[in-house]
Each structure stands twice: as structure tokens, then as C-alpha cells.
Nucleic acid binder design. Structure first.
Length: 469
RNA sequence: GCUGGCGUAGCUCAGUCGGUUAGAGCGCCUGAUUGUGGAUCAGGAGGUCGGAGGUUCGAAUCCCCCCGCCAGUACCA
């Protein structure tokens, strides 16, 4: 015997999880198609060198490796952006800008943690070949429209630009090569607070568990400049940008880079995406390794512990390793599993165990054909219907199934109903509500809760009304 | 990766000075009720005590190694 089991970090998505998830994916797809993006699918497995070159040394350990029968080294994709850059490099006769969406699982050999799995699904939206910040604007607007369509409650999209962070390095007189280390610390601002960020930028400290955190060794003057940058806050995007212009007054090229962000902001203003949901937040850093321009991320304000559920940015250099030249690209990615987990936590998704709306029960073997007729009549009327497919046995078992699967209606027809040309429709919820007050089983059985008899010919019409009502 | 805690039935757990046949609650199955899902009652199934090795007349219990899970911490293109 083999023990049925999954390797760590992997999980099954049972029907109740899948129903909510598929509804979510359908909603997102609807918004992306409204924007005129087109679908793309790529294989889960790629050549290892196609995957690994872009990611830097630390990514290597996170790739699940595989081989094919020819003995070639392959790996499972760890994001959808690298396969996209392969595709746009490989099919140069695509019509650019290539605007695509893709929803697919990706694999990372990380240590699994709550809400974090080794296989998870991303839903990406990207424009490849568009240099203009209009493309970035569209991505941010699509993020808002998607979150609205998903009815996630209050959220905030924050954006900034990787180039502004590079200007910060210049302003604080930190060599560009020190950028990643500095940004990684700034990225923790929300989590650990300004005090610890400053310590980590300078001398380091020892945390509560006694673990030493080493510092970067920046000078007090440098840290003060960084702090001044981080403290830029204002009610509107344009005020933030004005303060930034003032702070970076003496930095070369600063005004042009700020102009880019300003143009995105004013496009968003013109479209009605205002500072109540899209803000310029200079503290956001994002993944950093391949972003070259604007970066964005969205958080749900009532579920901030889930972090950013939707994030992205501009990455103009990613295809260079395939083609030798840069193609501008910008996009964003939804962590489908993380966002769904947040919505479940917020009780903002309907959780069902089946899509069935009606169960047609079967009691009398002689009426099997009739049960099938009823079932298909309902299906052809667009009502999601299942029929009792086992032996026609105890009605109680069949009602129990409807109860457990939360199927709202059961159609009951025995020989007496059949003779009279009627069927019984039972609304399960009524009995479920009554159950708390009913004491004796006889009373429960005799109650026939939520049942009504209707003419056989009116069945589909009646159920349609009940379901729509 | 590091530190600590924990692994006993589908789930939550009890059971260690080593001692007969490893228990409970919930859940599941069957019946009371072959036309009524809740409740109740009766009966039943379900265990390599995480795995391998060791000590012992005897190990769920003690020792060693490994694996897994949980919490914190680090990392996360």
C-alpha cells in the first residue's frame, strides 16, 4: 500500500476552494479582457538556463529542477514574467505592443509557511513594447478596476518609481551598487518601523530573540537624508511630488524622473483614480531585481497582514538576455491564492461546496425515466441540476446529501405525485432554520418543511422564479 | 537556514516512576425510520502510537539518528 500524501508545500484545492477561486479568476479575466488584453499560455517546464539566468544567484535554489528523457536540464517556472520575455523574444513577429494576460501556477522551492505554498497561482497582466507611461497608467487603473470588480472592500494602490530610489542613492551619496541592500531595508519600514530601519542602515542591533542584525554602516548624515525622504507625506499625489522636487532640487536628472511619475498621476486624476485609492508612496521598493521604472502594489486595508496582493512595475531590460536589446515592458501580478485567502478572512467570498442548485431525488425505480426527464428539462432551462445517481433508496440519504452540499432545492416525486401530475419542491433552508426548535423526530418528519406541490409542467418555471427571487 | 516546541483513530486530544488486549469526545457507517436532511437511542468500522535502530523479560513511555508539523527569526528575483 502507498500512503496517499503530498510533498510539503503542496496542497489540493477541493471543490469548495475551487468554486470561489474560479469565480475570482473569471472576474479578473473579465476586467483584463475589457482592457483588450489577450490570453497566453506557456508550459510549466522550461529549460533551466532560460529560467535561471535572469534571476540572480539567490533564485537558483528556489527553482524546482527536472529533466526530460533526453537528459536535458529543465525547471518549473517560478513566475510568469520570465516565460513572457522568452515568448516575446522567440516570436518577434508578434504585434507589439504585446498586451497579454496569463493565469497559471508557478513553483518556488521556498520553505512553506502559513498561506505560502510551493505551488501557487499568479494572474499576470503585462504590456510589452510600450515605452510610454500611459502603459503604466493602464496597469494601475486595471488594478483598481479589478479590485473593485472583486468587491474587496477598501484598498490602496501605492506607487513610486525605482528611478526615484536611485535618485535617493545619489542624494544620500550612496554608490548605486549599494542600492539593493538599502532598498531591502527600506522595504521593511512598515514591518519594523523607522527606528530599527535607521539602526539597520548604520550600526545594526540585536533583536528580541537575541539574533544579531548587522548594519550597513551608513553615516549619520546619509541616514538623515534617507529619513527626510521617507518622511515625505501629503494628502495628495501632487503634493508628495512637489515636496520630492524640493528635496531633490540639487540632484541631476531628478526633475525629469519626477515628471514621469507626475504624468502617471495626472492621467490617473483625469480618469477618476484619485488619492483616496491610489497614492504616491516613496517607501515602496518591490522586488527590485528587474524593475527599472514605476513600481506599484496594492494592499487591502482591512487585511494588511496579507501584504501586497497585487503588485508590479516596469522592467525594460528583461528581454535583453534573450535578444541583446531592451524592449520596454510593464505589468502587474495578482497572487491569486493570497488574495483569495485575504477575502476568505474578510468573509467577502461566497463559499459553496457544489454549484448544484437542484437535486432531483429518486425513490421509485419505475420512475427512473421520469426523473431523468425532469433533470434534463431543468438543465435545458439553465438550472444547475444533479440527479440522485445511485440506487433509488432512502429519501433521507438523498436529503442528507443536499443538506451537506448545501444544495438549495430538492425535487421529490413518488408514485402518488406522479399519478396526480405534480411534483414536490423542497427548499432546504426552511428546514435548516426550523431544526433548532423541533424536538421530536416525528414532528421533524411530519413538518415537511419548506415543501410545496406544483404542477409537473410548471416545474422549471417555478424553480427559475425561486432561484431568481 | 537558525532557535524552540510538538508528532497517539478522519479531527481534537488523554495515556510516561516502562507492565495484560492503547482510550475518550467529535466525525463516519448501519439500524430504530425501505417518503424526509436536524435531534435522540442502539450497534459498528477505523491505529505500523511519525520512521529506522538501540536498552529491556517487556517500550506509545527511556536513549540515538532521521522525517514531518507548529511558533519565532532570516531570506524571498
Amino acid at each position: 500500500m502507498v500512503e496517499p500524501r503530498l510533498s510539503r508545500g503542496l496542497r489540493d484545492l477541493l471543490p469548495d476552494a475551487m468554486l470561489a477561486r474560479q469565480r475570482m479568476i473569471d472576474t479578473i479575466r473579465g476586467v483584463y479582457e475589457l482592457y483588450g488584453f489577450s490570453p497566453l499560455e506557456t508550459p510549466a517546464v522550461e529549460y533551466l538556463d532560460v529560467l535561471s539566468g535572469s534571476a540572480g544567484a539567490e533564485a537558483q535554489g528556489q527553482i524546482f529542477e527536472a529533466t526530460n528523457p533526453e537528459g536535458e536540464q529543465l525547471g518549473l517556472r517560478f513566475d510568469l514574467t520570465v516565460p513572457l520575455s522568452r515568448v516575446v523574444s522567440q516570436y518577434q513577429d508578434l504585434i507589439f505592443p504585446f498586451r497579454r494576460y496569463q493565469v497559471s501556477p508557478v513553483w518556488r522551492a521556498d520553505k512553506p509557511e502559513p498561506g505560502r505554498y510551493r505551488q501557487f497561482t499568479q494572474f499576470d497582466l503585462d504590456s510589452v513594447g510600450a515605452e510610454s507611461e500611459v502603459a503604466d497608467t493602464e496597469i494601475i487603473a486595471a488594478m483598481c478596476d479589478t479590485l473593485d470588480a472583486l468587491d474587496v472592500g477598501p484598498y490602496l494602490v501605492r506607487f513610486s518609481s525605482r528611478k526615484i530610489l536611485n535618485l535617493l542613492l545619489e542624494y544620500a551619496e550612496i554608490p548605486q551598487s549599494g542600492g539593493p541592500a538599502v532598498f531591502r531595508i527600506l522595504d521593511k519600514l512598515d514591518k519594523i518601523g523607522l527606528g530599527k530601519v535607521k539602526l539597520e542602515l548604520t550600526s545594526g542591533y540585536t533583536d528580541e530573540s537575541g539574533a544579531p542584525i548587522s548594519g550597513l554602516g551608513l553615516s549619520a548624515g546619509q541616514v538623515e537624508k534617507i529619513e527626510r525622504f521617507l518622511k515625505i507625506k501629503a494628502d495628495s499625489r501632487s503634493e508628495v511630488l512637489e515636496l520630492l522636487r524640493a528635496l531633490f532640487g540639487g540632484v541631476d536628472n531628478a526633475q525629469q524622473e519626477i515628471d514621469v511619475v507626475e504624468r502617471i498621476s495626472s492621467h490617473l486624476d483625469a480618469l477618476g483614480y484619485e488619492s483616496n485609492r491610489v497614492v504616491v508612496d516613496l517607501g515602496i521598493a518591490r522586488g527590485l531585481a528587474y524593475y527599472t521604472g514605476p513600481v506599484f502594489e496594492a494592499v487591502l486595508l482591512d487585511a494588511q497582514q496579507f501584504g501586497s496582493v497585487f503588485a508590479g512595475g516596469r522592467y525594460d531590460n528583461l528581454v535583453r538576455r534573450f535578444t541583446g536589446r531592451s524592449i520596454p515592458a510593464t505589468g502587474a501580478s495578482i497572487g491569486v491564492d493570497r488574495l483569495l485567502a485575504a477575502l476568505v478572512e474578510l468573509d467577502r467570498v461566497e463559499q459553496r461546496k457544489t454549484s448544484s442548485q437542484v437535486l432531483v431525488s429518486a425513490m421509485d425505480p419505475a420512475l427512473m425515466g421520469e426523473y431523468l426527464q425532469i433533470t434534463y428539462e431543468l438543465r435545458r432551462a439553465g438550472i444547475r441540476t444533479e440527479m440522485h445517481v445511485g440506487k433509488p433508496k432512502r429519501l433521507g440519504k438523498q436529503l442528507q446529501r443536499a443538506d451537506r452540499l448545501e444544495i438549495p432545492y430538492v425535487v421529490i416525486m413518488g408514485s402518488d405525485e406522479a399519478q396526480r401530475g405534480v411534483v414536490t419542491v423542497k427548499e432546504m433552508l426552511v428546514g435548516r432554520r426550523k431544526a433548532v426548535e423541533v424536538r421530536s423526530h416525528d414532528e421533524w418528519k411530519a413538518g415537511r418543511f419548506g415543501q410545496q406541490e406544483i404542477a409537473r409542467k410548471d416545474l422549471a418555471k417555478t424553480l427559475r422564479l425561486l432561484l431568481d427571487g
